[in-house]
Design a protein around this nucleic acid. Structure first.
Lengths: 150, 150
DNA sequence: TATGATTTAATCGTACACGATATAAATACA
DNA sequence: TGTATTTATATCGTGTACGATTAAATCATA
């Protein structure tokens, strides 16, 4: 029983690890024409939904700490996707805002990504099922890490 | 229809990304006492199954290129987990072999990891289901990336 | 209102991760 | 035999990722 569990766990951690890697490669190739990386695209997705947020809020949305996010946003700023604006009311806060370029290119970027994904022939059903189960797992893992912190 | 697809995709890539991140954190904390990282543990898992393989073979098993694997194996060598041995028959090849330490600590490492995982209260059923679906997806994504290369 | 605690960003050190390039050994074959 | 191609590993540059530390602004409260 314990052994079954261990062996399943071994397989699952490989599966998650490798699937994440494949996603990375897939998106990397789709995003290459735009000179965007996969994590940068995830940040854009978050910002397209909700612009003008602080670094902290953005970090919570994409699950990244300041040590990762800060240099990444700086690079995106240099490439003209976003700008940082320090709040005048509370000078600790820095707001991240989308630049015109990010709005203009939104539809070509998402279109390109969708085309690439569809090459994988994944059905909507498969997609939905997998995601539900991933989210269940994700939720449990987050619960654990929170209870550890406490 | 296209929009449903796009929105599902967006959610799925987030879900995979974040779940991979949570796995990383979970294993990182479980492996800390052994001074192992999560990718290093995956390499050990592969080597416990099959020792004495070349860098190339190992890279295929864990889905990592030489640019990632080589410095990682060097670090693991410095810490006494493995050793590199250049083949005398074909001097291009380098075999990776486990050191005694890796055999000795195997059971305490896997035990520690299993304990940590069980804190998440994941049932065997959930585990198995999720993995099957991940593997389906993974297979399709690999097919795609292979057909691109060709 | 001074000051200690909290909040927010930025920086630092270590370790992946990948594609591109370099190097050297082995093989193919004209 | 000699040269071109292939194969295996190593290195390089860029970009995540994370925990720990630093620094500055704000807040709480004595």
């Amino acid at each position: 029983m314990m052994n079954d569990f261990l062996s399943l766990d071994k397989q699952l951690c490989f599966a998650v690890y490798e699937t994440a890697g494949e996603f990375n490669k897939l998106y990397t190739s789709a995003l290459k024409p735009f000179k965007l990386t996969y994590p940068q695209y995830l940040v854009l997705l978050a910002l397209w939904e909700n612009d003008q947020v602080t670094m902290k809020q953005l970090g919570e949305r994409v699950n990244l700490g300041t040590g990762t996010l800060n240099p990444m946003i700086s690079r995106m700023q240099e490439k003209g996707w976003v700008r940082k604006e320090r709040s005048t009311e509370d000078e600790r806060k820095v707001y991240v805002a989308l630049e015109e370029k990010a709005f203009e290119e939104k539809s070509s970027i998402t279109k390109r990504v969708a085309e690439e994904i569809q090459l994988c022939n994944i059905s909507m059903n498969e997609y939905g099922e997998l995601m539900e189960r991933l989210n269940e797992l994700h939720k449990k893992m987050k619960q654990r890490s929170k209870s550890i912190d406490a």
